[in-house]
Amino acid sequence: MNIQDFPQLSSIERIAQGFEALGYICSPKIATAVYLAFQLRKPILVEGPPGVGKTELAKTSAELLGVPLIRLQCYEGLDEAKALYEWKYGKQLLYTQVLKEKLGDLLHGAKDLAESVERLHQFGDIFYSEDFLEPRPLLKAMQQERGAVLLIDEVDKSDYEFESLLLEILSDYQVSIPEIGTVRADVSPMVFLTSNNSRDISDALKRRCLHLYIPFPSVELEERIVLSRVPDINETLRHQLVEFVHALRDLDLKKAPAISETLDWARSLLLLHADHLEEDLVRGTLNVLLKFEDDIRNAESDLTSLLPARAAS
């Protein structure tokens, strides 16, 4: 990717504005990360609690650049046949059967074995060429002519072996296929890796990436996010609900509500035609915010102390 091709990424301010126009409100740090990733041609490893917009960041970047988003969801047991490439073995087999007769014609008139082999050599490795190659997400991202955004989601769920596989791709944007050789990306894709920290990622992988940690946003930032995503909600309610969510995050919960939950809640409150927070309303919709029975019970017992103060403000 060259800077001329993507004027959207020429400065940090433009990135932030571009994201905002697409409905993704980001902190200066995130914009800096995208800018640096682009300038230094380095992947970004995005970490943070679930639901703070890690995957969304990659999607929005693809939208901003106007290039396809290629997504690879990682899981235990993911291997190169699913991530990188696979041979179209059915086609290979079929062709060998069909071409068997052709082979006879070709070799017709050859004087001896040596000459037959000589003739065959002229055809090269037909069956191991790009025609028989089934590209999987990683290879596909390398082959895009205009570049691509490659999202390697939840890389911490994959195995260590898979991580090593990524190393070559992430540092040189190339893939080695034993039968063909090295496939290099003409336009190196922009790579996002996300991780929920379910295990430590190897240092080798970490040091090839920019490390971006996205925490829960500040009240002000979150209000802007709600405003951009759920624009119909009135201002008092918006302020109240964001304050309430922030108060919830301070409680000792199994899973604190993230931005995505805040947005879901805002949408459901909008559906219910609420214009300010009431205790009954909150009690009834708490399950949108909290995903564990224990957490809901916990929050319900504290509800009165969390709410009146908010209502007064």
Binding site: K29, A33, H211, L212
Partner: peptide, 12 residues
Amino acid sequence: RLRNGLALTLAK
């Protein structure tokens, strides 16, 4: 900005 940039490249 520099602070953010260094944090991105150096911290893991």
